[in-house]
């Protein structure tokens, strides 16, 4: 078990390294340099060239990636914070510490000052959505999986397929038209300040609804497949033939077994929700992590983008590991020795 965990941990680190290198390499396609982005559009070419030379931004890709990694683990100080650059970039944590994501050229602030706040906001949004997705998809999945092809199954399946066909921006448009314009009971933006006259809890309703609509149908379909497979097992037939009530067959025998496979699917939705929040946060002007990723990619803010990538990939690999561990816990048949 210890060996399994160590193995997985090494794989997780390797995955994050590769992912961050891929992002680094892709960002090299951006026209415009780090120096130009730090100095702003009004700096002269001479100033830009000077800073480029100071930052050694013309070194080969691998060297620069190594330097970025060095700054991240705290082995070398962040070159952008060097007073000789004249940029006046100051990180209150110092220029050299473990977990230094560098300086955001977009926000002109240390990445660590920006990103955790945004991540927290998104965690609330995604967490609320998750709290609704889990029970909704379980109810829909179990009910439609009880009798495959029955009237209830067909109805619920069509509902689920329809909901999964509505991307976040479309459901955003539909819901805002309904509940903000035609019947104004909810705010159309969610800046998380009550300046607009709406209390903060109201501001969560539409963004959460948009996330739930797009995602729960998919999870419900997965749970349905698993439920169908369980309902065909001999032990269910035995239970029915013994004269057990349907209720006890479902709650006592089918449910726990049907939840094993979807458990992983549910955990993977955490990763999926990060995709979802990009659009949702743009629609509702929500100050979250997804919008930060979008803004950073559009601006070419490599430091922020790298930090965001590492965080999302870390979330993905950790949920995968949790999924596998939970899987073993739930199903004794697949325990690793």
């Amino acid at each position: 078990m210890v060996k399994f965990l160590l193995n997985r941990l090494a794989m997780m680190l390797l995955t994050m390294l590769c992912a961050s290198f891929l992002v680094f390499a892709v960002c090299e396609y951006t026209p415009g340099s780090v120096a130009r982005k730090s100095l702003g559009p009004f700096a002269t070419q001479q100033q830009v060239d000077l800073l480029t030379a100071k930052l050694k931004a013309n070194d080969p890709l691998v060297v620069r990636y190594g330097r970025w990694l060095g700054v991240l683990v705290g082995a070398i100080p962040d070159p952008l914070q060097d007073p000789s650059t004249g940029l006046n970039f100051k990180d209150p944590r110092g220029a050299q510490y473990f977990g230094n994501f560098g300086y955001s050229t977009l926000n002109k602030l240390p990445v660590n000052d920006v990103i955790w706040n945004r991540l927290g906001n998104t965690a609330i949004l995604a967490g609320l959505a998750f709290l609704l997705i889990v029970p909704l998809s379980i109810i829909f999945g179990i009910l439609s999986g009880l009798k495959e092809g029955g009237a209830l199954d067909r109805t619920l399946s069509v509902i689920c397929i329809t909901f999964t066909s509505i991307p976040e921006f479309a459901s955003g448009v539909f819901l805002v038209t309904l509940f903000v314009i035609l019947w104004p009971i909810l705010p159309g933006t969610s800046p998380l300040t009550s300046d607009g006259g709406w209390a903060i809890p109201y501001q969560f309703v539409l963004p959460v609804a948009v996330l739930v609509i797009y995602d729960f149908g998919y999870v419900a379909r997965m749970i349905r497949v698993s439920m169908i497979a369980v309902m065909e097992r001999p032990y269910i037939r035995t239970a029915v033939l013994k004269g057990m009530s349907t209720r006890r067959v479902i709650l006592g025998h089918a449910l726990r077994n049907a939840m094993i496979a979807p458990f992983t699917v549910l955990l993977l939705q955490i990763n999926f929700l990060i995709s979802g929040v990009v659009v949702t946060e743009l629609v509702f002007a929500y100050p979250g992590f997804g919008r930060l990723i979008l803004e950073a990619s559009l601006f070419g803010d490599i430091s922020t983008l790298e930090a965001a990538t590492l965080i999302t990939v870390a979330i993905a690999v950790v949920t995968q590991l949790l999924g596998d561990l939970g899987y073993m816990l739930l199903d004794p048949r697949i325990r690793v020795r």
Binding site: N271, S275, V278, T312
Partner: peptide, 8 residues
């Protein structure tokens, strides 16, 4: 690749 959120 699958560890990245698709939209990202």
């Amino acid at each position: 690749i699958l560890a990245f959120p698709v939209l990202v």
